Amino acid sequence: MRSAAYRFGSLLCLASCLVVAACVTINVYFPAAAAEKAADKIIDDIWGGEGAPPAKNDDKRSALPERSGDVLLAAAHSVLNLLVPTAEAAQADLNVSTPAVRQLTQSMEERHARLKKYYDSGAVGLTSDGLVEIRDQNLVPLPERNSVRKLVADENADRANLYREIANANGHPEWEMDIRTTFAERWSSKAAAGWYYQDKSGAWKQK
């Protein structure tokens, strides 16, 4: 009897720890899946869906092995199954619909019509920090070089402001770098065939 009571007390203690851990996770951790979803939506709006389709991300949680007679592990598994969906639901989406985000997205969409041919030629590429860069100015006709420099500078200003605005709009300015990193990965992943992008080491690669 005493053993059963002890095991029940241990179970309650474990469940309490899991609840506290789940709450900390909700409040602290950057919602990477929601950020990817938001980045894909914005990139599709800007590029008009002309890039590569997003890679499939199968979100399969590994099952916790249950051993016969192990009541604590089985109970912990059940508690986790209840808590994890709750945490994910609380951060299902990031707010990317503020007037500032919409204005920046529209500005970048209009500019893309002029930048696209430089992506296509390889003159301009996507950098590993979520910006764009003139990769080879020799591929830009001399009379167009000043205008391309301005296009790149304006695009980078809008991108930096976009990452900052999304972080601030969601009440977490400290997420700005994580958002920038997420966008950098999604820009490269969704780039059209033939476009250049930098890998994490900064080396240029062609899709």
Rank of each mutant, 00 (worst) to 15 (best):
V20A: 11
V19A: 11
A5Y: 00
G194Y: 08
D70N: 14
N156K: 04
P141T: 10
G48E: 10
H77W: 03
L12G: 15
P31Y: 07
D93W: 00
T98E: 03
T86E: 08
D199C: 07
A75I: 08
V148I: 04
I166A: 00
E109F: 05
L18A: 15
A100I: 06
D136Y: 07
R7T: 15
A193Y: 04
E109A: 13
R61Q: 13
V152A: 07
L11D: 07
E133A: 10
S189W: 02
N57F: 11
N138C: 08
F30S: 10
L12N: 11
G9T: 12
A21F: 04
D129Y: 00
A74M: 02
Q206H: 06
E36V: 14
R164P: 00
S121P: 12
T98G: 08
A100H: 04
D199T: 11
R61S: 13
L72V: 12
A34C: 09
S128T: 15
V19Q: 11
E176A: 04
E36T: 14
G202N: 04
A167H: 01
L162I: 01
Y6Q: 14
V71K: 04
H77S: 14
K150P: 00
D158F: 02
D70V: 10
V140A: 06
Q91P: 01
A100G: 04
S188T: 13
K41S: 15
R67N: 11
A113M: 05
Y6I: 15
L12T: 14
S188Q: 08
I46P: 04
A35P: 09
A167Y: 01
I26G: 08
A203C: 02
N138W: 04
A55G: 15
H112I: 04
V28I: 13
G171D: 06
Y197F: 06
A35L: 07
D154K: 01
A90F: 06
G171C: 08
E66D: 10
T86Y: 09
F183I: 03
